[in-house]
Simulated assay, not measured.
Amino acid sequence: MKYKETPSQAADYLRQAVPLMVRNRIPPNPLNYALWYAYVSNQLPELNVALDSTLKTYGTCPNLLSEQLFRKHLVSDDAKDTEEIHNGLVNLVNTLHEQASVAWEQTDSYSAVLRESLEALTDFNLTDTDALPLESIIRTLSLKTEAINDATRLFQQQIDAAQSEIAALKQELHQTRQDASVDVLTDLFNRRVFDTELEQLMQLGSLQELSLILLDVDHFKRFNDTYGHLMGDKVLQYVGRILKDECAEPLIPVRFGGEEFAVIAPGLGKDATKAIAERLRKRIEAIRIRQKSSGSVISSITASFGITCLRSNDDHSTLIERADQALYQAKLQGRNRVCSDSDGQ
């Protein structure tokens, strides 16, 4: 995005953006300033639609979505947002600049020789023994032509290599972003994202409901011991796929750690959250995995669930602890079930 505003226009946009951020509890960091500056300037209608939808869903703009919107609407695909990648692109530009300079020098030299040769040919007289011999002119032109061809060929090779390097850098940038927020095995968000998003959503307090689901694959250690870790990884991948299928926005599914998963449910109360957990439980119970070695089908995969809802005096740890206690109760009661922290109260 290019900023073309005058200083007074820019100041006016900032005066509009800051109250919006305060009213919607948007953290005052440079990334969010850029997002909401662009919002009030109304230069990117798609961004405005996305932010309006996010505010309607969450009552704020969670950090994860802010980063995604920033990358999508304000930064190009080959953005240099890490020093290493930035330096890599700078080196590429420098290399191409050097090769272009060499090619230009060769071209300039060739032009000079061509001028001198044409002048010599113009003055050439078969009876003039002091004139530059025709054979010498042709030889000089031939050598210079070969040199400029070599320089041009080298420059083209550098261009081709640069394109490959840029593609590799873009892939590395994409992987860096993925590594920072996504669990490699399950393709779900990781614990880092969980902690960040839960903390921000909890700051909304009484402005909206917020629920948390913790789930644990039953007897997973025993499963690994019986069938091996590769089969265990396959189970975790199946569970991750189910969570991605069933937990559309505004739900945030994550791999909490090991065989444990979590779902943050903003805007949902106990009954709606319990219904989601029950749907997940049934789908996990329906998992069937065929062993290639024996051909037998494994159908004993289940999970236990604990859910809780945000209370006025909660902090990050008390909310998680209460969901964990509900999960523990589900295991005590026989596993493969959903328990709430308020059940039996």
Rank of each mutant, 00 (worst) to 15 (best):
V113N: 06
K80L: 11
A10V: 07
Y110I: 11
Y37A: 11
A167G: 10
Q333G: 11
L204S: 01
K282L: 14
L143P: 06
F124R: 02
F223E: 00
R139V: 14
E84W: 08
K234L: 07
L121G: 09
S66M: 03
G267I: 08
D314F: 03
G306C: 05
Q68R: 14
K282A: 08
T186M: 08
L215M: 13
E285W: 06
T6D: 04
H219G: 15
Y3C: 15
V263R: 07
P45H: 04
N29S: 09
E197N: 14
G295N: 01
Q99S: 10
A103Y: 00
R153Q: 07
H316Q: 14
A100T: 13
H97N: 14
S181E: 11
D324Y: 01
C309L: 12
L207H: 08
V22H: 13
T60C: 00
Q291T: 07
E172S: 02
S211M: 05
Y58F: 05
K170D: 10
Y13I: 13
S117F: 03
R290Y: 12
L332M: 12
A180L: 06
E249L: 06
L310D: 11
S111G: 07
Q171K: 14
S317F: 12
A303D: 01
P30K: 02
T82W: 00
A17F: 03
G228E: 01
A168I: 14
A262K: 02
V338Y: 08
L69G: 04
T129L: 15
E278I: 04
D81M: 06
T196D: 04
E209W: 07
I159F: 00
E197H: 04
R15Q: 12
L44Q: 13
T95P: 00
Q333D: 09
R283V: 10
T140L: 11
V49T: 15
R337L: 09
E260D: 01
N48M: 03
